[in-house]
């Protein structure tokens, strides 16, 4: 369980949105097929494969949706 403050959540949203753009996804697939992502002001380093990354994107989008 990871606790995030609101600015940290906004930062995570930004990073995940950038990483899941079609160009970036292609880049990840062409290389290691995973990303390492610092979260919560670099307190945590997480390992994310493409499906997990996309799931995370969806969950964050849901939080910010109406």
């Amino acid at each position: 369980m990871m606790k995030l403050t609101f600015p940290q959540l906004l930062q995570l949203r930004k990073k995940v949105n950038e990483l899941t753009s079609p160009l970036q996804l292609q880049h990840i697939i062409d290389n290691d097929n995973y990303v390492l992502l610092f979260i919560a002001d670099k307190e945590h380093l997480v390992f994310l494969e493409i499906p997990t990354l996309l799931e995370l994107k969806e969950e964050i989008s849901y939080c910010f949706s109406f």
Binding site: F6, R13, N17, C63, F64, S65, F66
Partner: peptide, 18 residues
Amino acid sequence: MKTAIRRQMTIHPEVMDV
């Protein structure tokens, strides 16, 4: 926006992005 998020921000996240 979900209530918890709305309590933190007035601006809509998509507007913030543009």
